[in-house]
Design a protein around this nucleic acid. Structure first.
Lengths: 248, 248
DNA sequence: GACTGACATTGATGCAGATCAACCGGGGAA
DNA sequence: TTCCCCGGTTGATCTGCATCAATGTCAGTC
């Protein structure tokens, strides 16, 4: 934990693992210098709240390492996850004072934070940042729309398979792996978080994971480690036959 | 119809009804001149396809009048609407060759189209356009996330009430009306389209509309004209107690 | 004025997933 | 070592919405 913190504080943009994917991806070295002036790293522990919906938020940030979720909660407690933030994803909205959703660290994380006001100024003077942010936002919008199909029209089994596909794909993209042959990854979410993502109950999630395992679509090592012997088969189960692709 | 077409062809930006809300909202008169060079109006009739998912699309556009929908369709025919395009909304994605979703004109419409290549060039030289597009995209993303809560966690009755709230609110925003006292509007969607939006069947939509009517939450004049005696009541039925607000 | 087809309503029945409840297993604290 | 708690699994039952089917309504048209 201490080494993690120290790591974060001494980090330079040059060796940043998300340098080529984050909001700063298009920046040249001059622009990075500008960004560097207003940035600071911040660490969160698994389970920690990063922001509450409605709270003042005086920074925006890029996820450097770890995973966070965006959730909406109704008065009676019904919860829907509306975003899954992986490394290189952007947190917060320029031009808005308060957080719109609950932001929760699902694993230990490091954020690369920018003070909001100066970031907004930088955005108007540095088109590369705004350009990249637009691109990322459009990708997120596509992902959200894909998710609307999952929530609105897919069966519980298809929902689980869809989620596994997405996690596998993002994982592959991040690690520059191919999505062919046998694929392996860790589930970054509890059954309850999966349920919140998919609009299901955790019992249904558990049952459908078991069913996919029973049917040989996946294998489990422990509760969280997933092995997918045939990714095409998994995609079929997700109802994304042929393709259906989205990346992000 | 003919008069509509003529209207469209002779229209000037100066008297355009979406001038202050569309992607061109921030442009000064010089920039409008630039845009004017690459723009053309196009009319569609109710029911007409504007684009098929996967098709080449060589323009982007603003909705001037009328309503369109974005839908995803699975191989087996299950359909989910993922966007409702009202006047001033933006159609298409800069930097992408092909349409991602089916775009269908729900009513007769007029689009203000821009040839894509020159529009993209204009975007990089004219920050006002990119800025406004980013803002609109962020708003759409918020709307999509609100919709994920509706799809994932709300009951059929709440879904219907939510949809009515959104249409009422957008309608009010467009016509600069207050959302207080008795509110009145036309449903721009068939029962089937409502079902596709809400992840329901059209029968369930019909039943729940009848139920809301029976319970005095709404009144109907014909099939499409809705009267809401008490908007707060409707919002409560939507589960957005207190507020829950999103505009867009 | 009867016919047609698109849209909508209403009823009867079935089922996927929610709900309620019991139990399991492993890791951390005392 | 024991306890306990958290995350997960599994079973029994219930229910909200889908499904299947019939009927209603209105606008357009012959």
């Amino acid at each position: 934990m201490l080494s993690e913190a120290k790591f974060a504080e001494t980090r330079q943009c040059g060796d940043c693992p998300i340098r080529h994917r984050a909001v700063c991806a298009r920046c040249d070295s001059d622009e990075l210098v500008q960004l560097d002036k207003i940035k600071f790293y911040r660490n969160y522990e698994a389970g920690q709240m990063i922001a509450w919906a409605g709270d003042q938020m005086d920074f925006v940030a890029s996820v450097v390492t770890g995973i966070a979720t965006l959730t909406q909660v109704m008065e009676d407690g019904r919860t829907q996850m509306v975003g899954l933030l992986l490394p290189s994803d952007f947190v917060g909205r320029p031009g808005r004072e308060t957080a719109t959703y609950n932001v929760v660290a699902t694993s230990d994380m490091t954020l690369c934070c920018f003070r909001k006001k100066p970031f907004e100024q930088l955005m108007s003077s540095t088109p590369h940042i705004a350009q990249r942010l637009l691109e990322m936002t459009l990708d997120e919008l596509d992902a959200a729309r894909e998710w609307m199909l999952v929530l609105g029209r897919k069966t519980a089994r298809e929902k689980i398979a869809s989620l596994l596909c997405i996690i596998a794909r993002r994982n592959a993209a991040l690690q520059m792996l191919a999505t062919e042959g046998e694929i392996t990854f860790d589930l970054p979410l509890t059954r309850e978080a999966m349920a919140d993502y998919l609009g299901l109950t955790l019992e249904t999630v558990s049952r459908q994971v078991s069913a996919l395992k029973r049917d040989g679509v996946i294998r489990l090592e422990g509760k969280r480690h997933i092995i997918v012997p045939d990714f095409d088969r998994l995609m079929q189960e997700a109802g994304d036959d042929g393709d259906g692709g989205f990346l992000n």
